[in-house]
Amino acid sequence: MPPPNEYFNVPLRRVAIGHRDEFQQPGAVKAALAEFLSTLIFVFAGSGSGIAYNKLTHDGPSSAPGLISAAIAHGFALFVAVSVAANISGGHVNPAVTFGLFVGGNISLVRGILYIIAQLLGSTAACALLLFTTGGLEAPGFSVSGVSVWSGLVFEIVMTFGLVYTVYATAVDPNKGEVGILAPIAIGFIVGANILAGGPFTGASMNPAVSFGPALVGWSWAHQWVYWAGPLIGAGLAGIVYEVFFISHTHDPVPADF
Rank of each mutant, 00 (worst) to 15 (best):
G198A: 14
M159A: 13
M206H: 07
W150G: 11
A186K: 04
L153D: 06
P200S: 14
S151H: 14
A197G: 13
I185R: 04
G203C: 02
A204L: 11
V158Y: 01
L163H: 02
T160R: 01
P200C: 13
S211M: 09
F189L: 15
G152S: 12
V172I: 14
G180D: 09
G177Q: 08
V154C: 00
L153Q: 03
F212P: 00
V167A: 02
L182M: 06
V147D: 02
G198T: 06
Y168D: 03
V191Y: 10
A183Y: 04
A183C: 02
S151V: 14
S205C: 15
S148C: 13
A183S: 07
G152C: 05
Y168G: 00
A204D: 12
A204M: 07
F142I: 04
P140M: 09
L153K: 12
A209D: 13
A169Q: 09
F201K: 04
F155G: 03
A193S: 15
N175G: 14
G146H: 12
L196S: 09
L153H: 09
A197S: 15
A193C: 14
V158G: 02
G203I: 01
S211R: 05
S151M: 13
E138L: 15
G162S: 11
I187A: 03
V154S: 06
I157C: 02
A171G: 05
T202V: 13
E156G: 04
F212A: 01
G141L: 06
G198W: 10
V164D: 00
N194H: 10
V179E: 04
T202I: 11
I195M: 11
S211N: 15
L163W: 06
A197N: 12
T170E: 05
G203V: 13
I185C: 01
L182D: 00
V158N: 02
P200W: 13
I185Q: 00
I157G: 00
G198P: 11
I157Y: 01
T202S: 04
G188P: 04
G203A: 14
F161L: 11
G180S: 11
P140T: 07
A197R: 08
G180N: 08
L153M: 04
K176L: 06
M159G: 12
G203T: 14
M159Q: 08
K176M: 10
F212T: 09
M206K: 08
F212E: 01
A183W: 03
M206T: 14
E138W: 09
S211H: 14
T170R: 02
V147N: 02
V164S: 03
A204F: 03
G180K: 07
V164G: 04
N175S: 15
G141S: 07
S151G: 14
